[in-house]
């Protein structure tokens, strides 16, 4: 078969269009999933900014292990403490990172861990207090090399 210059171009354009569509569909799906996770975690309550502070590097060279930590401002007494904190990597194929559950015995609601990031994206931390109120913080992390394999 003889492939002309024009045909080659059309093929290329088609492939690009397909690739774009495909990745958009994945993003939409991931957003839907994070929305669902947020709704489940917060019980439909509106999240306010403040109290929780997310600490993460601005630029992560290696997306395979990105150090990340958070602290929630709370007296941590039996009737006023942080119940749990959820971390979401909004741009990952599966956004859930983990949920950390605290008790008054924690003394201080803070934790750090290492996470995988597929690409440059926003990471969200959401804290649920013992009275049910929700606080959140967001950070954008630039990723040089993605860390989800594939």
């Amino acid at each position: 078969m003889n492939v002309t210059r024009r045909q080659t171009f059309m093929l290329g354009a088609g492939a690009v269009a397909f690739a774009t569509l495909g990745s958009q569909a994945t993003i939409a799906f991931a957003t839907e999933e994070s929305d669902k996770l947020i709704a489940e975690f917060s019980g439909g309550k509106e999240a306010t900014a403040g109290k929780i502070k997310l600490k993460a590097p601005e630029i992560a060279e290696n997306g395979n292990t990105v150090p990340i930590s958070f602290t929630v401002d709370s007296p941590m007494t039996a009737d006023n403490h942080v119940a749990s904190v959820m971390l979401l990597a909004l741009g990952n194929p599966g956004p859930a990172v983990g949920t950390f559950n605290f008790t008054p015995m924690s003394g201080e609601a803070s934790a750090s861990t290492r996470i995988r990031l597929a690409k440059t994206q926003e990471v969200l931390a959401m804290a649920k207090m013992s009275d049910g109120s929700i606080f959140m913080d967001k950070k954008t992390i630039k990723v040089t090399i993605g860390g989800c394999g594939g």
Binding site: N64, T65, V66, S69, M76, A89, N92, G94, P95, A96, V97, G98, F100, P104, M105, S106, G107, E108, A109, S110, A111, S112, T113, R114, I115, R116, L117, G147
Partner: peptide, 14 residues
Amino acid sequence: PSVSANPYVQFKAK
């Protein structure tokens, strides 16, 4: 699954 290999967790306790 978004947690890195060799999961590291640091936290506090009273």
